[in-house]
Amino acid sequence: MAATQEEIVAGLADIVNEIAGIPVEDVQLDKSFTDDLDVDSLSMVEVVVAAEERFDVKIPDDDVKNLKTVGDATEYILKHQG
């Protein structure tokens, strides 16, 4: 069953908390992974792989560079989830 926008944001918040130690309540749609959430380029790869697994979605490397904010990632997952 496909996840809702709310479920995706909550899931990404868990992942970012695990990887970067950012409190889950700080992970909001408008937040930039690199500028606001302490997710550098290597950790972004971890976030993407964890999100792929959690939401049954494939995010090719070429698309990762377009996922600047939590909102970008949420929208991408909503559209592509299996």
Partner: peptide, 10 residues
């Protein structure tokens, strides 16, 4: 392959 940590080398 996909699950190998990107932090492995450093």
């Amino acid at each position: 392959v996909r699950r190998v940590s990107p932090h492995t080398v450093p």
